[in-house]
């Protein structure tokens, strides 16, 4: 993809049926756009049941960056996969809460081990049903997940695309 040639990539690996994305770079618009494409592509390819977003390398996150991250999480949810945000720094958390951002429905964990544990506790989504990329509307698990995140998911996704026009 020549369009993305000089844009830093977010490192990703698949481990135990989970995509682990480690965000160690600043989240500007271009990085986020590329990350979104990479991540959704990876989840689609691998049919992973969960995504762990490691943000321990992010020092500051403003409202726009947080909203962009949230919209990526919403997209993952709609694909039928689960997301866990890991390693939010104290300063980032203080700032986000002071700014009163919407954190409802976000799954977070203190570190990678805790994130894997959290994922183990949630019933698995059938991987073969996911491989076609369609939302998991037939399975009970998929339905519950979409219902939980649905309220936040839809306006967020629309907003991200609206921003780019």
């Amino acid at each position: 993809m020549p369009l993305f040639d000089n844009i830093p990539r977010v490192a990703m690996q698949v481990s135990r049926d989970v995509v682990v994305a480690s965000i160690q770079v600043d989240l500007d618009d271009e990085v986020l756009n590329r990350f979104r494409e990479d991540l959704l592509g990876r989840v689609h390819e691998t049919g992973s049941r969960a995504v762990i977003l490691d943000v321990s390398g992010v020092d500051t996150m403003d409202c726009d960056e947080f909203a962009a991250l949230r919209s990526i999480i919403s997209m993952i949810t709609i694909m039928g996969s689960q997301s866990v945000l890991v390693g939010l720094q104290p300063g980032v958390v203080s700032a986000l809460i002071e700014m009163d951002v919407d954190v409802a429905g976000l799954q977070t964990a203190i570190d990678l081990d805790a994130a894997f544990e959290l994922i183990q506790m949630t019933p698995a989504v059938e991987p073969e049903a996911e491989a076609d990329g369609l939302p998991e509307v037939d399975s009970d698990v998929g339905q519950v997940e979409i219902a939980e995140a649905g309220e936040a998911a839809i306006p967020d996704a629309g907003r991200l695309f609206g921003d780019e026009s």
């Binding site: 500051t60 104290p90 300063g91 980032v92 700032a95 700014m99």
Partner: peptide, 17 residues
Amino acid sequence: DEAPSRMIATAVSELGR
């Protein structure tokens, strides 16, 4: 300290944006 300096940086980020 760490947290307030990140809060200041976040304010800068918001206003700059």
